Amino acid sequence: MRPSKRDEILAAAKRVVQREGVTTLTYESVAAEAGLTKGGLLYHFPSREDLLLALHTHVAAEWEQAMEAEAGAPAEEITEDQRFAAYTRLSQNPERAELILQLEASENPEANEVWERVYRAWAPEPPSAEDLSDGAKLQAFIARLAADGLWFYEALSSQPLDPAVREQTIEAIIRLASPAEGAPETPDDGA
């Protein structure tokens, strides 16, 4: 199936952001990357803001589709632990464009909501003050912070992790989110 012009434009916009950042995202830069005219872009995206919001939506949807593929089902059809495992595995080695767009979204409520919807579906949310008595909710959120921290480390470090170290770290973070399943059994004192 041939991708639509709109999808081709968004893929080109993502490549521009990947290479040069959000500030260089202009009709001219995207038109040149997509091999289209500026008028062709205006037909699909009447303003730069429309283009940028569509790009946030497009990239967030790609990330969510990858998590669904990793988990084997959409978020609403699997457990919290399965969602978080997919989130943790797929949030590693992000493309530069994903990181840049997510950072840029923090300044734009509409774009931020696009990413927050994905986070709410796949990652543990911060516990409320009332939830603090539930250690499991706090521990699941700490695991999310560890996954996000690994994501930022991998995105920003000039020394990538050895694949075996990365895999062991990912599995440890996943176990941290649901300690009951991965916790070692304690020996009986009466034995």
Rank of each mutant, 00 (worst) to 15 (best):
M1T: 15
R2G: 14
P3A: 13
L10D: 07
R15P: 00
R15N: 01
V16Y: 02
V16A: 11
Q18L: 10
G21L: 08
L25A: 11
T26F: 06
E33P: 02
G40N: 09
L42E: 10
Y43K: 12
S47L: 14
R48V: 13
L51E: 11
L51A: 11
L52E: 15
H58V: 00
V59E: 01
V59H: 00
V59L: 03
A71W: 13
A75L: 13
T79M: 07
D81L: 13
Q82M: 03
Q102K: 11
L103G: 15
E107S: 14
E113N: 04
V114Q: 03
W115M: 01
E116A: 08
R117Q: 15
R117H: 09
R117E: 14
A121P: 08
W122D: 07
W122R: 06
P124M: 05
P126M: 12
S128T: 15
A129I: 02
L132S: 00
S133H: 01
D134G: 04
K137Q: 01
L138Y: 04
L145R: 10
L150Q: 14
W151N: 08
Y153Q: 11
E154I: 06
L156D: 07
Q159E: 15
Q159M: 10
L161S: 04
D162I: 09
P163Q: 06
I174W: 02
G182T: 04
G182M: 03
A183H: 04
P187S: 07
D188Y: 01
G190C: 06
A191V: 04
